[in-house]
Amino acid sequence: MKNFLEHTGIEPGRLHFSWISSAESTKFVDVVTKITDEVKMLDPANKKYVKTEPKVD
């Protein structure tokens, strides 16, 4: 899935997978912090899979 989405042009670093048990609160915090940090470093203008107003020719 990750390979495939990145193959079609999603930047590496946008998509994250993790396995966290409901008892692993500290792991959850760590992972989410890491993900938000990583995603913030990416170009915010690079909006993919966001629908825009239809183009009128």
């Binding site: 990145e6 193959h7 079609t8 042009g9 999603i10 930047e11 590496p12 690079n46 993919k48």
Partner: peptide, 16 residues
């Protein structure tokens, strides 16, 4: 596939 794999993320996006 190998050809597309060698492109950058943006180039891949535009290709598709």
């Amino acid at each position: 596939v190998t050809k597309v794999e060698s492109l950058s993320a943006d180039e891949k996006w535009n290709y598709f």
